[in-house]
């Protein structure tokens, strides 16, 4: 088990080094930041001075090494646009994104598993079929459209919920939270549904099909032959066996909830890292883009590592194989 974890951590580091290289090559290959930072009226001296100041005159390898060295310490340089350290900007924006991702993740997992189990057990019921048809909408409609539809219905027509922003936030240490105010909680509802709907329907459909598969197994028939109740059979015997593939997908989807928050944050003007990233692209603010890329890859890699370790806890057969 320990050697398995060490091996996986090693692989994770390798993946991060490679994404680091990609993130870093943006500095060299995507436009010239100097053009953006200095206006039309600049002198050659200004250009040279800034180039040296930012370390852009160094060879590629040296720049890459420096970048890694700094990145490991959480230093991603200075935003070209705002002139402030990128780490500082990211930290300021991260709570908004993480809270949004957490709420929509929980929404997707809890509702997805519950509905998946329900539609599997009552596979021929009217309600289950309605849910399955409705889930097609969640899978096929693009996120931004769902967001706009929700805004139209709940903000414009009904006026129940805010259409943009986080509402009032409370600062606790360096963390600004929207969980503690009514307007903050209200503001979370629509973006969370928008962001989580796709994942929710995906998890639901997966749980359903896995569950149907498991319910056909001999050990379910044997459990019935021993007179166990439906509740025990469905939730103790069947659900746990469906969890390995479901957790894989949940792990990947949690990563993409954070990554795809970009669209939702744009639709709802949510002041998180996704919106920051969009603004950074418009301005070719490479340090911000690189840091964002690194941040997302760290999250993906971290979550996948966690998922692999979780497998072994859920399925004892994998402990031996590992």
């Amino acid at each position: 088990m320990l050697s398995f974890i060490i091996k996986r951590v090693g692989q994770s580091i390798l993946v991060l080094l490679i994404t680091g290289l990609v993130a870093f090559s943006m500095f060299t290959f995507v436009g010239d930041p100097i053009d953006n930072m200095l206006g039309q009226e600049r002198t050659m001296e200004d250009v040279e001075r800034l180039r040296q100041q930012l370390g852009l005159d160094q060879p590629f390898i040296v720049q890459y090494y420096r970048f890694l060295e700094q990145a490991v310490q959480g230093n991603f340089g200075v935003s070209y646009r705002q002139g402030r350290p990128v780490a500082e900007i990211l930290l300021e924006r991260a709570p908004a994104t993480l809270e949004l991702a957490a709420v929509s993740g929980i929404f997707a997992i809890v509702l997805g598993i519950a509905l998946g189990v329900f539609t599997a057990i009552r596979r021929d019921g009217v309600a289950a079929n309605l849910i399955m048809s409705a889930s097609l909408i969640g899978v096929s409609l693009p996120t931004f459209l769902i967001g706009i539809l929700l805004i139209y219905l709940f903000s414009v027509e009904l006026g129940w919920l805010p259409s943009f922003g986080r509402g009032e936030t409370v600062k606790i240490g360096g963390w600004s939270t929207g969980f503690l105010t009514e307007s903050g909680l209200k503001a979370l509802i629509l973006p969370s549904i928008t962001l989580g709907l796709y994942q929710m329907t995906l998890i639901m459909r997966l749980v359903r099909s896995e569950m149907l598969e498991v319910l056909r197994q001999d050990y379910i028939r044997f459990a019935k032959a021993r007179g166990l109740s439906d509740r025990v059979i469905n939730f103790r015997h069947a659900l746990k066996n469906t969890m390995v593939p479901v957790i894989t997908v949940i792990g990947l989807q949690l990563g993409s909830i954070i990554a795809f928050a970009i669209i939702t944050e744009t639709v709802f003007q949510w002041p998180g890292v996704g919106l920051l990233f969009i603004n950074a692209i418009q301005f070719v603010d490479i340090p911000v883009m690189a840091a964002y890329l690194m941040l997302i890859s760290v999250m993906f890699v971290g979550i996948n590592l966690l998922v692999d370790i979780l497998y072994a806890f859920i399925d004892p057969r994998l402990r031996v194989a590992a």
């Binding site: 001999d218 050990y219 019935k224 057969r317």
Partner: peptide, 19 residues
């Protein structure tokens, strides 16, 4: 089922819950 009548199946590999 269980207390009065019960059944064993062919293959223990598939009939026992693996987890």
């Amino acid at each position: 089922r269980g207390p009065r009548m019960s059944m064993v199946l062919q293959d223990p590999r598939y009939s026992l819950n693996p987890v």
